[in-house]
């Protein structure tokens, strides 16, 4: 009597993952006792987490900072700065992403040169396009593999930090990601329309603009919205590098031990992210299911 196999591919994968995880746990030297923060940390943790139920509505020490902005105003300004940096960075990287995504795609030049009459076109498609493709791919991979905070660190070291530097630090890796995803979407778009246009004598740019892009457009819009959400998170975190987004205020309030204020900002951030998440979900649904 033979039962079902006991060690299928899936089971061994799960088991392997678990083993790797357990060994990583011991290599890191994690100890459960280190999770106990000691009496001081415990008190602090208690104070911090109990503040979650009573986020501050006004500045916690109004006496010392009588000239400072009221808390609600700070929160709104911080949210707006977070949105602004994200919107600027995403729109800029969208431009770069579209350009690099075009050169990083293969659909418009691979196996297309034979039909071309114009020798210049043929030469371009056969030799220049693959070269451009290779360069673009390397560029995309490199820009993506460095985290935006590290780009920010580099900017900080080379130039100093300002809002524009934060936008550029976000733009570099985001452009790479956009280009990667867009080129994949263009390559995976339904090729029949492209084929038809090509037979009618359209050039590569025309094929991309009128056949491949329209087919990939709903997915591209949906992905852009998703990137905007990521941008909100990242621009909030940029606050830790000194830009006046939500992270900056969280950092400052935590260092001053104004835990109730910290929670106000945290809730503001959660609200911001959930709001745009729900909104873009609604847009995505209408885009993919078709408008009725």
């Amino acid at each position: 009597m033979t039962g079902p196999p006991t060690l299928t591919a899936r089971r061994s994968l799960l088991l392997g993952l678990l083993l790797v995880g357990i060994s990583a746990y011991f290599i890191l030297g994690l100890k459960l006792t280190e999770l106990n923060p000691g009496p001081g940390g415990l008190k602090l943790g208690k104070r911090f987490f109990s503040a979650a139920f009573s986020p501050a509505l006004t500045n916690e020490d109004s006496a010392a900072l009588s000239g400072a902005n009221p808390l609600w105003k700070n929160a709104i300004v911080a949210c707006w700065e977070t949105i602004r940096i994200s919107a600027a960075a995403v729109s800029l990287s969208l431009v770069f992403g579209l350009a690099f995504g075009f050169f990083g795609a293969t659909a418009w030049w691979r196996n297309r040169s034979s039909g071309m009459r114009n020798p210049l076109y043929r030469f371009f498609l056969r030799y220049c396009a693959p070269l451009l493709y290779g360069i673009t791919r390397i560029l995309i991979t490199f820009t993506r593999s460095v985290h935006e905070l590290l780009w920010a660190t580099l900017f900080l070291a080379a130039l100093g930090m300002g809002p524009l530097a934060a936008v550029f630090a976000l733009t570099i890796p985001f452009s790479g990601t956009f280009a990667k995803i867009f080129s994949e979407m263009i390559d995976e778009a339904d090729p029949s329309a492209a084929r038809a246009l090509e037979l009618a004598g359209a050039g590569p740019l025309q094929v991309v603009c009128f056949a491949l892009l329209p087919a990939a457009l709903p997915d591209m819009i949906a992905y852009t919205l998703y990137r905007f959400e990521c941008g909100l998170r990242s621009s909030a975190v940029m606050g830790f590098m000194g830009v006046l987004t939500l992270g900056y205020y969280i950092d400052a309030s935590f260092e001053n031990r104004h835990y109730h204020e910290v929670w106000t900002y945290l809730y503001a951030m959660i609200f911001l992210i959930v709001f745009f998440e729900k909104w873009s979900d609604a847009i995505r649904r209408r885009l993919t299911e078709g408008v009725s």
């Binding site: 994690l30 280190e34 999770l35 923060p37 909030a236």
Partner: peptide, 21 residues
């Protein structure tokens, strides 16, 4: 998921101190 990893880490370091946890 509303709070980014980096900010979670910042808050938890304040409470647990600096180790890998």
């Amino acid at each position: 998921r509303g709070i980014p990893e980096f900010i979670w880490a910042f808050l938890l370091i304040g409470i647990l101190g600096i180790n890998a946890w």
